[in-house]
Design a binder for these strands. Structure first.
Length: 864
RNA sequence: GCGAGAGUGGCGGAAUUGGUAGACGCGCUGGUCUUAGGAACCAGUAUCCUAUGAUGUGGGGGUUCGAGUCCCCCCUCUCGCACCA
């Protein structure tokens, strides 16, 4: 312990009143000077890697950040007090669209904008007193970070895990640029409002489908993850067992391959639906249908891609003029194109069974196609003409030739086997999961290290020529596509294979690539020989506790799991999964306010329900996630200025449990500030009294009660914080203990009991409000910091009371209470309960049927 | 549309395994102290109400001695849906 921090420690105590400003700047300085939270691998202690999802450097910290990082900090400090060697790093998810938009809007370079934002956000985070190891900080736009991502890409390319294929993007012809889904509003460009068209581009993909099974299997082993996240991931991967069936096209040698999970309904197929993008469409369309079909395809192309995958739209279709043959019954069925059939799933062709599939049913009704029942529920007789909706439940086969009478689950097997034997189909496994498209036609991202040569094709940049540095001399206008695609010095390069003039790839990576491995790089941020120092990565990984928003339940968390397996298979680390435990936190919301003239208003632009600009009455909007665009934000800086960081932290933790959305309410903040003042006074008012006292072993009366409360609180807070993350109830329990301290009568006679209670309060509160706790701990006369003094433990023998109160119910309704000795047997409890006067009133003259005694809780007397 | 969650006083929330519904905090009401307080402290506060009573956890049904908790149906809200991060 050297440096100015130690000097600050020796400085005079500030016990007279609670002044958060002084207390907080004092301890933040100490932590910085002593590098209190820097983690090292040499420690004897067991490692604990705690991580919150890193922020995008938008420029300002908002309450959602405060909440996320306060939650993480509680765990970090709690684990440190429990004696773990805690790694708790922070960094910046720094590539992405907002920097480009800022560049277009304010004529500032994305790099300048990003790094300035990082500087100001770092300052704000430090004001909150978060216990980060700032030595490990990095931004994903640092060359020393993304260069290793380029290396991993080359290895993936080598192994065939990165490949190129055609894929469609949102294209605005006016701006000559690719739009993100977010930039498409009602099918139009958000800047020029022109119609957005699909455009086919060659793009890079990661072969996440190779890992579909492993990703799925591990969802059963991640016991530290919320079940709802696992369930969403399982459904996203969407593994289904089914059958591929080939339908010959009538009068040709072509075959249409379909995938179905319901081969049992094959006899009920009355038509075929193809995706409009299906490769066979051209050869299937007959001359007389051609014009109509082309119109239809153009109409579907205009539909929002997101809408089409979401199925929110009206189902439409068109007859191609051709027919297919059902291989089981040789029936001729018409082939349609349908907008809800997607090329990306299965084979892009669906055998339509209207009687047993709701989408097909609606389609058949609309286009007057035949409906045939092939599954009958037991004891019913479905008639096709009378169906109001598709029947999708189990039943027995009918109208199905030799399979009639077989139950449909066995029929799935039998029909698949039958087709397989005849070479007309086979059992298959299908996934909903698609390969991960990582190409972005954007500037502010990691350049993809590929060179295109007319003779050699796509040639990887040789490892020794990495990194491919993102050039900074660009101008962003929002039009004409990515600036990289127009940057001659960047583009023009010799082919690494043949030396002829060639062209660099101008696309950059999806920013999800950076966030798929940052947690691994934190273990060795300065390593220069590769992406990861294997020893460090293996020491710290997996992350023991990962904390972040529920909105990342599928994509980020699935990509990070996939990328970890890639790094493992490239021999760069030895873990299978990146995150052992996951906590998904809810959002911070606040009501919105809107002026009829000036639109959304910030809270400070409203006075007495009126707009401060024009004086008009303000409309109260819905309570929504805090966002800049809705202006329903609370600036944490103002809150910290007014009450201090400890109050801001305490409130964000006390107002709701972490997984729940938190609705912002200013008044609750006051209450938290009052509580900290109460704690401060409880310590400072009793300092004289508790000086030089020891904790007694045996006490009686209200001293015994306070002692019991102290130990019960230690137990409750420990259990609530450890793994359960019920911070709000942990804080409530500490509040109860503080209330008990205030009403403690015999303090003069029992100063030791009082001291024990006060020290417990300070220790237990430390993870939540560390500044005030360090100060109070020092006031209590300790030389060591409270964080290094260990987590308090409870004494089992101090927990038990001699007597307990039991509730007596009659027919399930509370009718009285009795006090009994803890050791009382159920026979004597029963006797006592039956003789309770009010209970007597309710059982008098009635037949006693049953008495249920729940030990330690209640007695229920059943009469009738 | 598909997938996943949530719904409890005036408000935020508590009730860990089916066992006293409303802990803790806010707000409100009354009081004490004070020149004064938007400070501090004390008391009260689900609803109806004469209560030792009745009702009450989004709505409707069910299982149970007992349901906020388990089962079925419905309503509302939130998140994700592959180029926002």
């Amino acid at each position: 312990m050297t440096g100015d921090g130690a000097a600050a420690r020796c400085g005079g105590p500030m016990e007279n009143y609670y002044n958060p400003k002084n207390v907080e700047s004092k301890w933040q300085q100490v932590w910085q000077d002593e590098q209190s939270f820097c983690a090292s691998m040499d420690s004897e202690k067991e490692k604990y890697y705690l991580l919150e999802m890193f922020p995008y450097p938008s420029g300002r910290i908002h309450m959602g950040h405060v909440r996320n990082y306060a939650i993480g900090d509680v765990v970090a400090r709690f684990k440190r007090m429990q004696g773990f060697n805690v790694l708790h790093p922070m960094g910046w998810d720094a590539f992405g669209m907002p920097a480009e938009n800022a560049a277009i809007e304010h004529k500032i370079h994305p790099a300048k904008w990003t790094y300035e934002n990082i500087d100001s956000m770092r300052k704000q985070l430090k004001r909150i007193g978060l216990s980060y190891d700032w030595q490990r900080e990095f931004a994903t736009c640092d060359v020393d970070y993304y260069r290793w991502e380029q290396l991993v890409f080359l290895k993936m390319f080598e192994k065939g895990l990165a490949y190129k294929k055609g894929s469609s993007v949102n294209w605005c012809e006016d701006c000559q640029t690719v739009l993100a889904n977010e930039q498409v509003e009602d099918g139009c460009c958000w800047r020029c409002h022109n119609l957005v068209q699909p455009k086919e581009l060659e793009q890079w993909f990661f072969k996440i489908t190779n890992y579909a099974d492993e990703l799925l299997e591990w969802t059963d082993k991640l016991s530290g993850w919320p079940e709802r996240v696992l369930s969403m991931q399982r459904n996203w991967i969407g593994k289904s067992y089914g059958c591929e069936i080939e339908f010959p096209v009538a009068d040709t040698t072509e075959k249409v391959k379909v995938f179905t999970t319901r081969p049992d309904t094959l006899f009920g197929a009355t038509f075929m639906s193809l995706a409009p993008e299906h490769p066979l469409v051209k050869s299937l369309v007959t001359a007389e249908q051609e014009e109509e079909v082309n119109k239809f395809i153009a109409a579907v192309e205009r539909q929002d891609k997101a809408d089409r995958t979401s199925g929110n739209l009206e189902k439409i279709g068109i007859f191609t003029g051709s027919y297919c043959i059902n291989p089981l019954n040789n029936e001729k069925i018409p082939v349609f194109l349908a907008n809800f059939v997607l090329m990306g799933y299965g084979t892009g062709a669906v055998m339509a069974v209207p009687a047993h599939d709701q989408r097909d049913f609606e389609f058949a009704k609309k286009y007057q196609l035949p409906i045939r029942v092939v599954i009958q529920p037991e004891g019913e007789d479905l008639v096709a003409d009378q169906l109001a909706e598709a029947f999708t439940d189990p039943g027995l086969l009918t109208n199905s030739g030799q399979f009639d009478g077989v139950d449909n689950e066995s029929a799935k097997e039998q029909i698949a086997a039958f087709l397989d034997e005849r070479g007309e189909g086979r059992k298959t496994v299908n996934y909903r999961l698609r390969d991960w498209g990582v190409s972005r036609q954007r500037y502010w991202g990691t350049p993809i290290p590929i060179i295109y040569c007319d003779s050699c094709g796509a040639v990887p940049v040789p490892e020794e020529e990495l990194p491919v540095i993102l050039p900074t001399d660009v101008e962003l206008t929002g039009e004409g596509g990515s600036p990289l695609a127009r940057h001659k010095d960047f583009l023009q390069v010799a082919c690494p294979k043949c030396g002829k003039p060639a062209k660099r790839e101008s696309d950059t990576f999806d920013t999800f690539v950076e966030s798929s491995w940052y947690f691994a790089r934190y273990t060795c941020p300065d390593y220069t020989d590769g992406p990861l120092d294997k020893q460090a990565a293996n020491h710290w990984l997996p992350v023991d506790q990962y904390i972040g928003g529920i909105e990342h339940a599928v994509m980020h968390l699935l990509y990070a799991r996939f990328y970890t397996k890639i790094l493992r298979d490239l021999g760069m680390l030895d873990v299978d999964e990146p995150f052992t435990n996951l906590l998904t936190q809810g959002m911070v919301c606040k009501e919105t306010q809107r002026c009829p003239e000036h639109g959304w208003l910030y809270p400070e632009q409203v006075e007495d329900g009126k707009c401060t600009i024009c004086g008009q009455l303000v409309e109260l909007g819905r309570t929504e996630k805090m966002s800049k665009s809705k202006k329903n934000v609370v600036d944490p800086n103002q809150l910290i200025d007014q009450y201090g960081a400890d109050t801001a932290r305490l409130f964000s933790l006390f107002a709701a449990p972490p997984e729940k959305d938190l609705e912002w309410n200013e008044q609750g903040v006051e209450g938290c500030f009052r509580f900290l003042n109460r704690v401060w006074r409880a310590v400072s008012d009793n300092l004289e009294l508790i000086k030089n006292t020891a904790i007694p072993n045996t006490v009686s009366g209200d001293a015994a009660e306070l002692r019991r409360k102290t130990h019960q609180t230690i137990k409750k807070v420990t259990e609530d914080v450890d793994g359960r993350f019920h911070f709000n109830t942990a804080i409530a329990a500490i509040m109860e203990l503080v209330n008990a301290i205030y009403s403690f009568k015999s303090r003069q006679e029992n100063p030791g009991v009082l001291r024990e209670a006060l020290e417990a309060v300070v220790s237990l509160l430390n993870p939540f409000v560390p500044h005030i706790c360090e100060e109070l701990w020092q006031l209590l006369g300790h030389q060591q910091s409270v964080e290094s003094s260990g987590w308090p433990s409870w004494d089992e023998s101090a927990l038990v009371a001699a007597e307990i109160t039991l509730v007596v119910q009659v027919n399930g309704k509370v009718r009285g209470k009795i006090n009994v000795a803890v050791a009382a047997d159920s026979q004597s409890i029963e006797t006592e309960a039956l003789s309770e006067p009010n209970v007597q009133r309710f059982i008098a003259g009635k037949q006693l049927r049953k008495v249920i005694v729940v030990p330690g809780r209640l007695i229920n007397i059943v009469v009738g």
